Simulated assay, not measured.
Amino acid sequence: MYYLLQIGNSIADSTQKVVNAAAQVQEKISLWDLLQKGGFIMYPLYVLLVATIFVFFERLIAINKASKIDASFMNIIRDNIITGNISAARNLAKNTNNPVAKMIDKGIQRIGKPIDAIEKSMENVGKLEMYKMEKNLSILSLIAGIAPMFGFLGTIFGMVQLFYGIASTGEYTLGTIAGGIYTKMVTSATGLIIGLMSYVAYSFLNTQIDKTANKMEAASADFIDILQEPTR
């Protein structure tokens, strides 16, 4: 009977431990608390995240502004040039603030020179405008490369923390290794997520720049065609 009571008590204790463990697992942890477990490596990752968001929206606004082109712009330029009203065409291009208008303005300034010289001048302006749109995009490319590396660095620190805890306590328990595992997993996941965000942002902005570049090339070709049309 005594042994049966002991077995019953053991089962009860085991059951209580399982219940307590389940209750601990069910406890919710906030995102901020989880991120804090990543340790000091999280702070440079926070900086990279803020830089990614800032550069993305700053470039997105600038590129969207550059890509806005009035559908009637080239038609008005064509009518003014064909009728010989060069000054009106120049004023329109000069007062329109986008890459296409700046290219056309340079082309109008070179009217009377050989077509090759006009194309070259417009091409140079186009390159400058492309450089302006691509400004700071290299930051996103850099973050996409180094953010996962910071996460990997956090993995190393987490493993050092884990083994140091085991060596200093001489115990291989869940409590001993939890801190190192948290640091390892949180920093690795955060670094990968930030790197992925930066890569997606970089690719998206490059696509938008390519669309604007196509509009610039089309406008340049239209302008050269206009110069070869007979005047009225």
Rank of each mutant, 00 (worst) to 15 (best):
A178Y: 02
V200K: 02
G180Y: 12
L174M: 13
V200E: 00
G191F: 11
T187Q: 07
T190H: 01
L174S: 11
S198A: 15
I177F: 06
S198P: 00
G191M: 09
T183I: 15
T173Y: 03
Y182D: 14
G195W: 10
I181H: 06
G191P: 08
K184Q: 11
A178T: 13
L192I: 15
I193F: 13
K184Y: 09
I181Q: 07
I194D: 05
L192Q: 08
I177E: 08
A201Q: 00
G191Q: 06
L192T: 13
M185Y: 09
I193G: 02
V186N: 11
I194K: 08
Y199M: 11
I177R: 00
Y202R: 01
L174A: 15
T173S: 15
Y199C: 02
A178V: 07
G175Y: 06
T176F: 03
A178N: 09
I193L: 14
L174T: 12
M197Y: 12
L174H: 04
G195M: 08
L192R: 04
A178D: 08
T176N: 12
G195R: 07
G179A: 09
T173R: 13
I181C: 07
I177L: 04
T176W: 03
L192S: 11
A178P: 04
T176M: 09
A178F: 05
G180P: 12
L174C: 01
M197S: 13
V186W: 03
I194S: 11
L196E: 04
Y202M: 07
T173L: 10
M197W: 11
L196F: 13
V186M: 05
S198N: 00
L196W: 04
G179F: 00
A201S: 14
V200G: 00
Y182L: 01
A178E: 10
I193E: 09
G195P: 08
G195L: 05
M197I: 13
V186K: 07
A178W: 03
V186H: 06
S188A: 15
G191E: 10
I194W: 02
T176L: 02
K184I: 09
T190Q: 03
K184F: 08
V200F: 14
Y202C: 03
K184M: 14
G195V: 04
L174Q: 13
I177H: 04
L192D: 01
I193T: 12
Y202W: 09
V200W: 02
G180L: 06
T190A: 12
A201F: 12
I181P: 09
S188T: 15
S198K: 01
V186G: 08
G195H: 08
L196D: 07
G175K: 06
T187A: 10
A189V: 15
T173G: 13
T187V: 11
